[in-house]
Amino acid sequence: MAHDHNVNPNAPLEYQSETGRLNITGFWTFLGAEIALFSTLFASYFALQARVGDGPTSNEMFEAGLVMIMTMLLLTSSFTCGIAIHEMRANNKKGVIIWMIITLILGAGFIGYELYEFVHYVHEGVTLSTSAHWSMFFILLGTHGLHVSIGIGWIILLLIQLARRGLTPKTASKVFISSLYWHFLDVVWIFIFTCVYLMGMVN
């Protein structure tokens, strides 16, 4: 913070100010912590995977089609989010906003399907209290879903700031950081898709 005048005009906008660079590095460090956080959830899920008690197994509940739709929605949103940053580096404010809005719509679709899935399970009688397996399923998926929801709210705030203030080193670094977060959530989803859903349907 004490070196705010230290500006490098040749770097991409988000790296131009000292604060921007520190924030980006700091956020990556935070993502390291998020890796540990999700690993612990995964570890607990695996440890309790076979503990279904009187409840159903994953195989009896999961629906391949639904999972595939959710995966494609989030994967595509990660792609459009990347395009938004690409536009940002071309200094195209309108492009950033349009692609980010597409990203948010896809993200909201993902959340919608996830909520549908949860409600559906509850109707079938599978809840947080059914068995250790399902407790961990809801908490692991819920934590990811909560992250995505927070990401949607956060990016909306940033888009308002972007519309008001335009692309500056400060807004650019904020948008860039939110994109890191969004991509990271897709990375987590890849593992949920693979280890929870696909493996759940194999067994």
Binding site: Y15, T25, L31, S39, F46
Partner: peptide, 27 residues
């Protein structure tokens, strides 16, 4: 990319190491 690319990559790789330790160890 960026001036901290090495640092960030190193930190993330350490994160994956920790992830493997936690998940494999716990399981």
């Amino acid at each position: 990319e960026g001036e901290d690319g090495g640092l960030i990559s190193g930190n993330t790789l350490f994160g994956f190491f920790i992830a493997v330790v936690i998940i494999v160890g716990t399981y």
